[in-house]
């Protein structure tokens, strides 16, 4: 899967502020909506929150993958957000989450949606890479790390 096609500099939010799960998701959805990719930000947020209610997407080692299916997007829409301070996202290992990969995909559309999450999780499963990502100062550096 070619991550370069989906990930661009403009889909990276480098300074996510710590907060509750709802606030984190609101910030990321608003960020994506500001680029005009979401038609109805409330329903997009609800879709992601509904998925979180079933089971938290806070994984291990500071990584979280909030995602949802919503018709407020017409194609797979992705965002990478970094919260350097770390924030509680109800992670599996109880540690604060620092890297958030969010995907929104249309409800009944065929396409490699989960595969995107899988590919990026595979990259982030290398601890040295997630450290570098957090330390990176510009979105260009972050993009280069994710798509290298």
């Amino acid at each position: 899967m070619n991550l370069k096609k989906l990930l661009i500099k403009e889909s990276i939010l480098p300074n996510l502020k710590p907060g509750s799960k709802e606030e984190i998701i609101r910030q990321i959805v608003d960020f994506v909506a500001s680029s005009g990719k979401i038609t109805d930000r409330d329903s997009a947020r609800e879709a992601v929150l509904a998925r979180e209610e079933k089971m938290s997407t806070g994984m291990q080692n500071g990584i979280a993958i909030p995602h949802g299916k919503s018709d407020s997007v017409d194609q797979l829409t992705v965002a990478v957000a970094i919260c350097r301070e770390g924030t509680d996202f109800d992670a599996m290992d109880g540690n604060p989450s620092r890297i958030f990969i969010m995907t929104l995909s249309p409800a009944n559309r065929v396409g490699p949606h989960i595969q995107f999450l899988a590919e990026i999780s595979k990259i982030l499963s290398r601890p040295e890479l997630s450290e570098k990502l957090i330390e990176a100062s510009t979105t260009s550096e972050m993009l280069a790390l994710l798509t290298a």
Binding site: M55, I114, Q115, A118, K122, S125
Partner: peptide, 15 residues
């Protein structure tokens, strides 16, 4: 190397 996708998709189906 291909377990990520299988695991993530299984979780979604379980949910």
């Amino acid at each position: 190397e291909h377990q990520h996708i299988a695991r993530l998709m299984l979780v979604e189906e379980l949910l």
